[in-house]
Design a protein around this nucleic acid. Structure first.
Lengths: 302, 302
DNA sequence: TTCGATCATACCCAGAAGGTATTGGTGAGG
DNA sequence: CCTCACCAATACCTTCTGGGTATGATCGAA
């Protein structure tokens, strides 16, 4: 059986007349007769009763008509959906994020992507940097978000944003009384650092910036992510350098202050990583959305 | 696109290798390559990425694989269901019954048919004799049950059962005290007759039997069906001749008694009617069940 | 570098789909 | 009652396409 048989059968069933059906199908009558005969023979079922006035469906034919229409519409849907999938408009994208990256940029990015590709199901996974790279290689995810990423042989990097660093500090802290805080003044104050885990990370960036300013930070506590870090600041464990997107975390007793006399390039990046050889149209569409986001959100990059 | 394309595509997708897939399909490799290329071209979508180790599905290909499997299984189901419909094992049978025919034979018959053809949906309609014939001609029903039917040009009749006639009589009625009741003794007692409506009917049979015995019945009341008739007997309106299947109606004050000295052929038939030119396998199966029923229920015919 | 595995291409053949002409059967109208 | 119109079926031819064989191109492993 062929899809052609179904197309022909539906035409004959609807016209109840082989000649008219043949005209509608742009073929002549005899081949159509033969195709219908073939179909009946293959099924072993009489689908039509031939009358001098035309073709009339049997009960089995009625049923087969329903089925044939179903199949034809399913075929149509299949091609259409496949084409949409090919254009990256249908499917699934597995995205890894890190502990506190749910702030600011990423939600906006995902929202923008959703708007352009409403039928792509975005699945979020929380992973550390090392887990992300492993999951990328195992194809469990297609995109990972993180900071301080370096390109690898098989892993591409695309920058999403560059953020200023701010100081999260307790409102009652002595430094918080000053009109402005010089970066080097942090030397004498215990500091909360994050994240623990795979190096190099944001921790190394902070320590590097301190040493550029000529001091070693007093480490009060190392924690897993920015959320925990700011929570410890609220609990009086010290101060904490955070990316500006952390300001979406509002604690009653924590204020975010800019720093002066900072070393050059007092920023931290947010980037995404992906398999370089990933041909997926969905990934291409996603990276395009990232590019678009960078252009339309100049406030979050320097 | 063809069902062949789908079959080939699924094979290649499953084997991830054109050569092996070709072997599985019992064709050589080059035609298979070409068919896959055709499919991709027609869809305008790259379904596979060719690697030196074989064929790997793209994301769009993964989706199309699901769809292709769906379609193929639907095609399989369609042929199977159509064949079952052709054998009268799947479909719908519209059956008309008359007022009180729901007694005895018809439920048993329908039950037997259900057992042999569980996927045929039997739909019951209550209709008078005239309505049944009109509905048959308009193809709204396929079978009708009634009594006293005569074959017509386009309508076939098949007898289902022949029932004895009994007298429904109030337990306190004077005649009910006698050891046996002679039919002619009904002459002096008012009688409830049914059904009203299209003639000839059961009414005419009863009147005919009376005149064969040499009397005219005293008509107490004409009612629509046996159920109402027996109810009036219970209410003291008189006696009522009923087919023996009416004994399934048990009223506390009504008894059913046989009659003696009856004219010959003191019976009434129950038959079904159908379109003579109806080729439906379901009807054929139903009439066969009727035939079977007559053989296995000798008690209900004489 | 060579060999083996894999997919792609070139070319041929056979079978099947489609076309034209005609037959057979049935019902409406003169 | 006959004829014509209409419809499906058949016969036969043509064309197209799916499948076969032989071969090429590419890449990875030995």
């Amino acid at each position: 059986m062929d899809l052609r048989h179904l197309r022909y059968f539906v035409a004959v069933a609807e016209e109840e007349n082989i000649g008219r059906a043949a005209a509608r199908l742009h073929i002549s009558q005899p081949p159509l007769t033969r195709q219908i005969q073939q179909l009946e023979e293959e099924l072993g079922v009489t689908l039509f009763i031939r009358t001098p006035r035309g073709m009339e469906l049997t009960q089995a034919g009625e049923l087969f008509l329903e089925e044939a229409r179903n199949i034809r519409s399913l075929v149509e849907q299949a091609t259409e959906r496949t084409q949409r999938a090919d254009q990256g408009k249908l499917g699934r994208l597995d995205v890894a994020i890190f502990g506190s990256a749910i702030l600011d940029a990423i939600p906006k990015l995902l929202l923008a992507f959703r708007n352009h590709h409403p039928d792509v199901k975005v699945v979020l996974h929380t992973m550390t940097k090392a887990e992300q790279i492993e999951a990328l290689r195992q194809r469990r995810i297609s995109v990972g978000f993180n900071r301080m990423l370096t390109p690898l042989e098989d892993i591409g990097v695309q920058q999403v944003a560059i953020e200023d660093l701010l100081l999260a500090i307790h409102a009652d802290h002595p430094l918080a009384r000053q009109p402005s805080i010089r970066f080097a003044d942090l030397q004498d104050h215990p500091m909360v650092l994050f994240p623990t885990g795979a190096r190099p990370s944001f921790i190394d960036r902070v320590i590097g910036l301190c040493s550029e300013s000529g001091f070693q930070p007093q480490i009060s506590q190392e924690v897993g992510d920015a959320v925990t870090g700011v929570a410890l600041v609220a609990g009086g464990f010290g101060v904490c350098l955070v990316p500006e997107s952390a300001t979406t975390l509002q604690f009653p007793s924590v204020v975010y202050l800019p720093l002066t006399d900072t070393p050059p390039n007092f920023h931290v990046d947010l980037s995404c990583i992906y398999r370089k050889n990933d041909q997926s149209p969905i990934l291409a569409a996603f990276l395009e959305t990232v590019e678009e986001y960078k252009k339309t959100s100049p406030g979050s990059r320097r």
